[in-house]
Computed example of a mutant assay.
Amino acid sequence: MTLSILYAASSPSWEEYEAPLTAALGATGLRYRLGPDLPAAEVDYIVYAPDSDVQDFSRFPRLKAVLNLWAGVEKVVGNPTLRVPLARMVDDEGLTQGMVEYVTGHVLRHHLGMDAHIVNPDHAWHHEAPPLSRDRPVTVLGLGALGTACARALSALGFPVTGWSRTAKQIDGLRCLHGTDQLGTALDGAQILVLLLPDTAATTDILDAAALARLAPGAFVINPGRGPLIDDGALLAALDSGRVAHATLDVFRTEPLPRDHAYWAHPGVTITPHIASETRAGSAARVVADNIRRSEAGEPLRHLVDRAAGY
């Protein structure tokens, strides 16, 4: 049997993925045809991004699974026409490594006080050594694949890391807390906070005024997770008061961030344009191809989305 695999994504583009997917699928030994224009009645799998024109999955009677190219699934998980398994992108070679590099880079930047030396118009001699990593508590909210990898990397650099997740986790070398009752404890006294939670109803505005008040005075906030995790007004107020020394933000409620948004003009905010972690075509194609191979072999799909949890 020849499988029909539909590529349905506006970004990343078909031109970017055609060769890597062809190579990865070819290595599985499966017989297949692949492309962006296949008859709906014949499609077995969809390689997907939520910005695709494909929104009605009931058009695909043979559909076995949807393989998402993005880590985030909040724009598709609630689609009532999607009744087959949905797998999110977990790519240790690309997405995960990119996120680890972004988070460790900005944690070290704030820990070492690099901005004071890079931006020093008065040529002042700031002879103030930073603390050692062991004296800088870091909290990571979200212990999925990305959060766990970042927490482990920071722990390996000597930071005392507390990780928080919705459900219980046990990760060697980390202090792991979970559940609503322990969220405040996870935030208490953190000097650097990294947000890597999914975007769900339960996580919207999780970093509000009350949560910010539990951080150490002069804390740093790094958000490469999802824009709605932060109450923007509360964060701006915390920056103005000095409760938060600086916020490095990669994701926002509206993207691109509107040119008149208060974040742009605030001296305590660094904006990066949603670049913390990108899907890399070569490694992501291998993840997709392996999941299709697993499905055809009767093995469970990897990285399945929990519809009830939303991620």
Results as ranks from 00 to 15, higher is better:
residue 82 L to K: 06
residue 112 L to I: 08
residue 134 R to I: 10
residue 21 L to T: 05
residue 24 A to W: 10
residue 108 L to N: 12
residue 59 R to T: 09
residue 58 S to F: 08
residue 46 I to N: 08
residue 59 R to K: 10
residue 96 T to D: 03
residue 71 A to E: 04
residue 75 K to E: 01
residue 114 M to E: 15
residue 83 R to E: 14
residue 51 D to S: 00
residue 55 Q to C: 03
residue 35 G to H: 11
residue 90 V to H: 09
residue 103 V to T: 03
residue 128 E to T: 05
residue 122 D to F: 13
residue 59 R to W: 10
residue 80 P to L: 07
residue 66 V to L: 04
residue 93 E to R: 13
residue 27 A to Q: 15
residue 69 L to M: 07
residue 89 M to R: 01
residue 78 G to L: 04
residue 60 F to K: 08
residue 59 R to M: 07
residue 79 N to W: 05
residue 95 L to D: 00
residue 68 N to Q: 05
residue 104 T to A: 02
residue 108 L to I: 14
residue 72 G to H: 05
residue 61 P to T: 13
residue 110 H to T: 12
residue 23 A to W: 04
residue 22 T to W: 05
residue 74 E to R: 01
residue 48 Y to F: 14
residue 56 D to E: 14
residue 136 R to P: 02
residue 103 V to R: 07
residue 63 L to T: 11
residue 58 S to C: 06
residue 40 A to R: 15
residue 96 T to K: 00
residue 102 Y to P: 03
residue 36 P to A: 04
residue 120 N to D: 15
residue 65 A to L: 07
residue 48 Y to W: 02
residue 78 G to Q: 06
residue 123 H to L: 13
residue 27 A to V: 04
residue 62 R to L: 14
residue 41 A to Q: 15
residue 36 P to R: 02
residue 29 G to Y: 12
residue 57 F to K: 08
residue 76 V to L: 07
residue 58 S to N: 12
residue 56 D to Y: 08
residue 105 G to K: 09
residue 95 L to E: 01
residue 68 N to M: 03
residue 116 A to L: 11
residue 26 G to R: 11
residue 136 R to S: 06
residue 133 S to I: 07
residue 74 E to W: 03
residue 105 G to N: 05
residue 50 P to L: 00
residue 55 Q to N: 10
residue 34 L to E: 04
residue 134 R to C: 10
residue 20 P to V: 02
residue 73 V to N: 03
residue 119 V to L: 15
residue 31 R to G: 15
residue 93 E to A: 12
residue 84 V to M: 10
residue 88 R to N: 06
residue 44 D to S: 13
residue 39 P to W: 15
residue 130 P to N: 05
residue 29 G to M: 12
residue 85 P to A: 09
residue 103 V to N: 05
residue 126 H to G: 00
residue 29 G to K: 11
residue 72 G to C: 01
residue 88 R to F: 08
residue 45 Y to W: 14
residue 64 K to N: 10
residue 45 Y to H: 14
residue 128 E to A: 07
residue 110 H to N: 13
residue 50 P to I: 00
residue 64 K to R: 15
residue 125 W to H: 12
residue 89 M to A: 10
residue 108 L to V: 14
residue 44 D to T: 11
residue 66 V to N: 04
residue 114 M to I: 14
residue 66 V to C: 05
residue 131 P to W: 13
residue 50 P to F: 12
residue 65 A to Q: 09
residue 79 N to D: 14
residue 87 A to E: 02
residue 63 L to I: 12
residue 48 Y to Q: 02
residue 22 T to V: 01
residue 47 V to P: 06
residue 132 L to R: 10
residue 95 L to F: 03
residue 76 V to M: 06
residue 94 G to A: 02
residue 33 R to I: 07
residue 30 L to H: 13
residue 22 T to R: 14
residue 45 Y to A: 11
residue 47 V to Y: 11
residue 45 Y to N: 08
residue 67 L to V: 03
residue 111 H to M: 08
residue 21 L to C: 06
residue 68 N to T: 02
residue 120 N to I: 06
residue 97 Q to V: 00
residue 19 A to C: 01
residue 124 A to G: 07
residue 42 E to C: 11
residue 46 I to D: 09
residue 78 G to W: 09
residue 37 D to R: 14
residue 104 T to W: 04
residue 26 G to H: 13
